[in-house]
Deep mutational scan, measured.
Amino acid sequence: TLFEALYDYEARTEDDLSFHKGEKFQILNSSEGDWWEVRSLTTGETGYIPSPYLA
């Protein structure tokens, strides 16, 4: 399933992933509550992002 970022986000820890509004992601793991592990389709990087920032 693909999701798109609604807002920009700046990583706060080394496990987080910074991203920009409009960036698209593949969800790798959504079992961690509000923090999902994703792969950016723009950069190929993986990390955790806050799920409320996605649509």
Rank of each mutant, 00 (worst) to 15 (best):
T1M: 12
T1D: 13
T1I: 12
T1P: 13
T1F: 13
L2G: 14
L2K: 03
L2I: 15
L2S: 07
L2C: 07
F3P: 01
F3H: 05
F3L: 06
E4H: 08
E4I: 15
E4W: 09
E4V: 14
E4T: 14
E4K: 03
A5R: 00
A5E: 04
A5W: 04
A5K: 01
A5F: 15
A5G: 02
A5T: 04
L6E: 11
L6T: 14
L6Q: 08
L6H: 05
L6V: 06
Y7F: 11
Y7W: 12
Y7R: 06
Y7P: 00
Y7I: 08
D8Y: 03
D8N: 06
D8Q: 03
D8T: 04
D8E: 07
D8I: 02
Y9R: 02
Y9V: 02
Y9L: 09
E10F: 11
E10P: 03
E10W: 10
E10G: 02
E10M: 09
E10K: 08
A11K: 09
A11V: 12
A11R: 06
A11D: 02
A11H: 05
A11C: 06
A11S: 13
R12Y: 09
R12L: 10
R12V: 13
T13H: 14
T13I: 04
T13G: 15
T13W: 15
T13V: 08
T13A: 11
D15Q: 14
D15I: 14
D15P: 05
D16K: 13
D16C: 13
D16Q: 15
D16L: 12
L17I: 12
L17T: 14
L17M: 13
L17F: 13
L17S: 03
L17A: 02
L17E: 01
S18G: 06
S18Y: 05
F19A: 05
F19G: 01
F19V: 09
F19W: 02
F19T: 03
H20N: 08
H20S: 11
H20T: 12
K21F: 11
K21M: 06
G22M: 14
G22K: 00
G22L: 01
G22V: 02
E23L: 01
E23P: 00
E23M: 03
E23D: 15
E23G: 15
E23Q: 05
E23I: 01
K24G: 02
K24W: 14
K24Y: 12
K24L: 15
K24F: 13
K24R: 09
K24H: 07
K24Q: 10
F25V: 01
F25S: 00
F25E: 00
F25C: 01
F25I: 01
F25A: 08
Q26K: 05
Q26T: 09
Q26F: 15
I27R: 04
I27E: 09
I27S: 00
I27Q: 00
I27L: 13
I27K: 04
I27P: 02
L28Y: 10
L28E: 01
L28A: 01
N29H: 11
N29I: 14
N29K: 03
N29E: 05
N29L: 04
N29W: 06
S30E: 09
S30R: 12
S30G: 14
S30N: 12
S30A: 13
S31D: 12
S31I: 09
S31E: 10
E32F: 14
E32V: 10
E32I: 13
E32N: 15
E32M: 13
G33N: 11
G33A: 12
G33S: 11
G33W: 10
G33V: 10
D34G: 11
D34P: 08
D34R: 04
D34W: 13
D34S: 08
D34T: 07
D34E: 10
D34Y: 15
W35P: 03
W35R: 14
W35E: 04
W35S: 05
W36Y: 04
W36N: 00
W36F: 03
E37R: 05
E37F: 15
V38T: 00
V38H: 00
V38W: 07
V38D: 03
V38G: 03
V38M: 01
R39I: 12
R39P: 03
R39H: 05
R39F: 06
R39T: 08
S40Q: 06
S40E: 02
S40A: 05
S40I: 12
S40Y: 02
S40D: 04
L41H: 06
L41A: 15
L41Y: 04
L41Q: 06
T42P: 00
T42A: 13
T42L: 13
T42Y: 08
T42I: 08
T43E: 01
T43C: 06
T43Q: 02
T43R: 01
G44L: 04
G44A: 01
G44H: 04
G44M: 05
E45R: 13
E45Q: 14
E45K: 14
E45A: 12
T46V: 14
T46C: 07
T46E: 06
T46K: 06
T46D: 06
T46F: 10
T46W: 06
T46N: 04
G47C: 09
G47K: 06
G47H: 07
Y48E: 04
Y48G: 01
Y48V: 07
Y48C: 09
Y48S: 04
Y48W: 15
I49K: 12
I49S: 00
I49W: 02
I49T: 02
P50K: 10
P50L: 11
P50D: 02
P50C: 12
P50A: 05
S51Y: 09
S51R: 10
S51Q: 05
S51N: 15
S51W: 15
S51I: 06
P52W: 15
P52C: 15
P52V: 15
Y53V: 05
Y53Q: 07
Y53E: 05
Y53W: 10
Y53L: 12
L54A: 09
L54R: 05
L54E: 04
L54N: 09
L54H: 07
A55Q: 14
A55S: 06
A55R: 04
A55I: 13
A55T: 12
A55C: 13
